[in-house]
Amino acid sequence: RILRLDGAAPDAGLAGETAIAEGVSALVNEFWNRHMDRIKPWYEPRPDDVILTASFDVTVGEACRRLGLNRLVSSTVDPRTMRVTCLNFNTNKPKRFREVVGPDTVIDEFYTDSRFDQPVIDMARTAFMVSGNRITQVK
């Protein structure tokens, strides 16, 4: 016998996928209800901000919505099936950024907590490394 991730039988089809999506949405909302205060206090969202992350859209998208941000370039997952559709990391980040935001978009300031983001640091006019509450200009 084969069971789906949500415990529904394989023939449950769309109803099972809807249940998965609703469950994920509830978990994500619960997470951000507890953790929105972890967004750095120095960060002030602006309408032209782009959140570029390896994290998944189903989680970070909710934080963006709460911050009033509309542009997210992230790893993606189909919330109905939980299948990964795109991994957005390392050299994929600049490629996906250009695909989603546009090939001529200039990155004025880039903030990161990882040297793995060097390909995007190279694209930016200025870049900053964030460690806790410490911000260091690296470009």
Rank of each mutant, 00 (worst) to 15 (best):
R4A: 01
D113P: 02
A127N: 07
T136N: 14
R66G: 04
D57W: 03
A12M: 05
T76S: 12
D104C: 06
P47Y: 10
A12R: 02
M36D: 14
V28Q: 06
T59N: 12
V100T: 13
A9S: 13
A127M: 09
L52P: 00
T59M: 12
P119M: 06
R80K: 14
G23H: 05
L52A: 00
D117T: 07
A124T: 01
V58I: 14
V50R: 00
M123F: 05
T85K: 10
P10G: 05
I39N: 12
A12N: 03
G16P: 00
R96S: 07
V50L: 02
V100K: 10
V106A: 10
R134S: 12
C64T: 09
R38P: 00
K93I: 00
V101Q: 04
F89G: 06
T136L: 15
T59E: 10
I20M: 07
R65M: 07
L87Y: 10
K93Y: 02
S75E: 03
R134C: 11
A8L: 09
I135G: 07
W32L: 03
I2N: 13
G7K: 05
V24M: 09
A26Q: 14
A26G: 08
D122P: 03
N29R: 13
I107N: 00
V28W: 03
H35C: 10
V84W: 09
T112R: 01
T105C: 07
R125W: 02
S55I: 06
I39F: 13
R134F: 12
T91Q: 14
N88K: 06
G132S: 08
R115C: 14
V130I: 12
P79W: 00
P10I: 04
N33A: 15
I135N: 07
T112I: 05
R98D: 05
D113Q: 06
A8S: 12
L14H: 08
V120D: 00
S114N: 12
V101C: 09
R83S: 13
D6Q: 01
R125T: 10
V138P: 01
R1L: 12
E62Y: 01
F128A: 02
R46A: 14
R115E: 12
N29D: 13
A21S: 11
A26F: 09
Y43S: 10
W42T: 08
E109Q: 12
V138C: 08
F116L: 15
P103W: 11
G102T: 04
V28N: 03
A54Q: 08
D117G: 04
N33H: 11
E99I: 06
L3W: 10
A63G: 05
D113N: 10
D122S: 10
R98L: 08
I51D: 02
P103L: 11
E17S: 05
G23K: 03
T105K: 09
V58S: 08
A8G: 14
M123Y: 02
